[in-house]
Design a protein around this nucleic acid. Structure first.
Length: 749
DNA sequence: GTTGGAACTTAGGAATCTGGAT
DNA sequence: ATCCAGATTCCTAAGTTCCAAC
């Protein structure tokens, strides 16, 4: 069943989702005091008389003021005190590998890492404690996938690098003549077995992160003024001042919260004297600093080619040295090998922490993860790592705790790596599994709309939204820690409006809320009557700021989903619906007779349908108006050309009438051709304009990268003879190499 | 069972690069 | 050769899910 999600249609072309900033005001200073409305929940409870609702104890007393910026703090600041209901009984969790039927991994011999020690000589010891090491090849479903009949080296042992390897490695690192060489043959990890024991790798070696560049004090002639008088700042205070100065242009340096947070954190960096003197941000004049940085960036732009080349080479050197690691005998690209530099935090939307100082990360903050038997990365001279550990149950190479939210940041591998690719592939397989049973689940939740139990009804309605509208799960968030955004489970009464009748449709629900990244979701959808009635019920006796689904959270929902299908979670619906929509739209929009650009346009339109479904928005490009004008000018010129061409045809006709010779006839023909050509070009330009206009605020990239099973696109390309390069750029081809290699034109999601 | 932390995916915007127009 | 717009890459915030400790 493809194209089996009829209810998307409305969404696909339903209107505008503008990110209206006014809209945000609406939520800005709201104090959500759900706590005060617990009584309402109690009321509902009794209404349904279900016994399973114990009371929701209230415990929300956040103590603000965290020691955030305490020196070297690795402490958590997440003293969360959830006020969520926890009345549900939670099922015992099942152990499983997410329904990904794939065989245990057996190491196969790579041939492409010449830069690093060739592993040939180095056998890894086989892991004897891995019973599943016998590859019984639970081959991945995809029928066609396997056509090539891989030579699975089922018997190759997992090799572990030995000393020899290390030595070689060192040598490679130093004189990296070899390192330059591209591996001619790309490693097809998808033809190999996977680990099934939960381990992520056997061997991992890397050079550690690239630390942020040290602070470079500003020259003495560049001055900071306080209260009109120049003032030399201590180095630490100065550094933080430069962060602010660099942002001076930006609107958010005018925001109260930003300024307040900044000033508070800045003062912590000041010496006692500075602190005593600098008491008012308004009296601070950063303009000379700002000009200095501006001039610097101008200078950078004006650099000669040689200078630029030099920088480029230096970057390339860093990339070669730090941008790769060896994981299980393969050289793999690292995604983010640089430590995030210090600066001022800018969250998205109305973030309560905007402007806070994002502290500089020191080696002492950093945890290194690598193989015990690898050459460990060296900390910068005179420093040490916080810890070096050897945990092969995780994929990260480096981690540190960030001081704004107290969360952990990681350095991990590039999307083209085996470890990311396998996971990505698995994600789509889970979504395809959902396809097989989605109708069953749909009937199930429709049944549940009638349940006697409130929490089941809520779960069923929420699931309906997640399925129909591709909403995110919606975890609860801690108030005051981040912008006020919601997803499905965390929707509040104020986020929807019910219209028994609107615009000629019955039972319309209007959604208006800020989702991830404070992107507005606005949509009007007709729903089934039963859903509508349920929503009315859920909203009864509630305040706008109360949870719509007060008996539900993501944990309850996902537990339920897990029971319905192995590996099923809320986000699988987004993947499934995105991919199935693409497949179906491609089927619908592709016209076999059309030429290549037209087909690509169809692809983009199908992609766009998905982006709209998933609400992937972008700010209209700054150059949008101009580029539209340019295009319009082209169109006008083409129109002009066309009308001239038509006039030519007329006169050629007249000519022919008079002369009646072959030559005139031919002339007429060629004029006619010119008209046709111009018409075609005009049409193309107009289509392009439409396309661009339609795309003004839609971001296609996110869905392409994260939600659309690449095999659908690859199959489509193969079917219509479209070079895959037209659809995926180089990076994307690297990420989706597995799909490009395995999908043939018959692939069905 | 709850809770918070850890791990990992998803996200939009800024910075940088590139190649075609001039 | 230079400029510019669009494409690509980088950056890191903001989500989801899993899991261990209580």
């Amino acid at each position: 069943m493809s194209g089996d999600n009829p209810h998307h249609d409305s969404q696909v072309d339903s209107g505008s989702r503008n990110n209206d900033h006014k809209h945000k005001e609406k939520y800005r200073d709201k104090e959500h005091k759900q706590k005060e409305h617990k009584k309402d929940k109690e009321r509902e409870k009794s209404k349904y008389g279900s016994s399973d609702h114990k009371d929701f104890s209230e415990k929300k007393h956040r103590e603000k003021e965290r020691l955030k910026h305490k020196e070297g703090s690795t402490d958590r600041h997440k003293d969360k005190h959830k006020d969520k209901r926890k009345e549900e009984n939670i099922k015992p969790k099942k152990e499983k590998e997410n329904g990904f039927a794939s065989p245990p991994r057996i190491k196969s011999e790579p041939n492409n890492d010449d830069f690093y020690p060739s592993p040939k000589s180095l056998k890894r010891e086989r892991d004897d404690d891995e019973p599943e090491v016998k590859p019984k090849k639970i081959k991945i479903q995809n029928d066609k996938v396997d056509k090539k009949g891989k030579k699975r080296k089922a018997d190759v042992e997992d090799v572990k690098p030995k000393k020899g390897q290390k030595n070689k490695k060192g040598e490679v690192a130093d004189g990296k003549k070899k390192a330059k060489k591209e591996p001619e043959e790309k490693w097809k990890w998808w033809e190999e077995e996977r680990y099934t024991d939960g381990s992520k790798w056997r061997f991992l070696e890397h050079k550690g992160p690239v630390m942020a560049a040290p602070y470079e004090p500003i020259p003495g002639n560049v001055r900071f003024f306080y209260d009109g008088k120049p003032m030399k700042l201590s180095q630490d205070a100065e550094e933080v001042a430069t962060f602010f100065a660099k942002m001076l242009e930006h609107e958010y340096t005018t925001k109260d919260i930003f300024r307040k947070n900044f000033f508070k954190d800045w003062r912590k960096e000041m010496t006692a004297e500075e602190k005593a003197k600098i008491t008012d941000l308004k009296k601070c004049d950063f303009t000379e600093l700002a000009e200095y940085f501006k001039a610097q960036s101008e200078a950078r732009k004006a650099m000669t080619k040689e200078e630029k080349l030099k920088i480029k080479e230096e970057n390339e050197r860093l990339l070669q040295e730090y941008g790769f690691c060896v994981m299980d005998n393969h050289k793999e690209r690292i995604a983010n090998f640089r430590i995030e530099p210090p600066g001022l935090f800018r969250g998205r939307g109305d973030h309560p922490k905007m402007g806070m100082l994002k502290r500089r990360i020191r080696p002492e903050d950093i945890i290194i993860n690598c193989s015990k038997d690898s050459k460990h990365p060296k900390p910068p001279p005179g420093t040490r790592w916080k810890e070096v550990r050897h945990d092969n149950k995780v994929t990260w190479l480096v981690s540190w705790t960030e001081n704004i939210q107290g969360s952990i940041k990681y350095i991990m591998l590039n999307p083209s790596s085996r470890i990311k690719g396998e996971k990505d592939w698995q994600k789509y397989e889970t979504a395809r599994n959902l396809k097989k049973c989605v109708e069953r689940l749909r009937s199930q939740y429709r049944e549940d709309w009638k349940s006697k139990e409130m929490k089941i009804r809520q779960r069923a309605v929420a699931l309906y939204f997640i399925d129909k509208l591709a909403l995110r799960a919606g975890n609860e968030k801690e108030e005051g820690e981040s912008a006020d955004t919601v997803g499905c489970c965390s929707l509040r009464v104020e986020h929807i409006n019910l219209y028994p009748e609107k615009d000629g449709q019955e039972f319309v629900v209007e959604f208006d809320f800020l989702g991830k990244d404070s992107i507005r979701y606005y949509n009007k959808v007709p729903v089934e009557k039963r859903v509508f009635k349920n929503l009315q019920l859920f909203m009864e006796n509630k305040q706008p700021e109360d949870d719509l689904f007060d008996r539900l959270n993501t944990s309850i929902l996902n537990k339920h989903l897990q029971e319905l299908m192995d590996g099923l979670t809320a986000k699988v619906f987004r993947t499934y619906n995105a991919s199935i929509t693409l497949q179906q739209q491609l089927k619908e929009l592709t016209n076999p007779d059309e030429n290549l650009p037209a087909k690509i346009l169809s692809y983009n339109r199908a992609n766009r349908a998905v982006a709209i479904l998933c609400n992937h928005q972008r700010a209209a490009p700054k150059t949008f108006e101009k580029s539209m004008q340019n295009l319009q000018a082209k169109i006008d010129a083409k129109k002009q050309q066309l009308s001239e061409a038509k006039r030519d045809v007329k006169s050629a006709k007249a000519d022919l009438k008079v002369r009646r010779d072959e030559k005139s006839k031919r002339a007429l023909e060629s004029k006619k051709k010119a008209v046709e050509r111009a018409e075609e070009q005009l049409m193309k330009l107009e289509v392009q304009a439409t396309d661009r206009e339609e795309n003004k605020q839609i971001a296609l990239g996110t869905s392409k990268l994260n939600y659309l099973d690449p095999r659908i696109s690859v199959a489509w390309c193969k079917k219509w003879g479209i070079p895959v390069e037209k659809i995926y750029n180089k990076t994307q081809r690297e990420k989706f190499a597995w799909a490009i290699d395995m999908a043939d034109e018959d692939f069905e999601f």
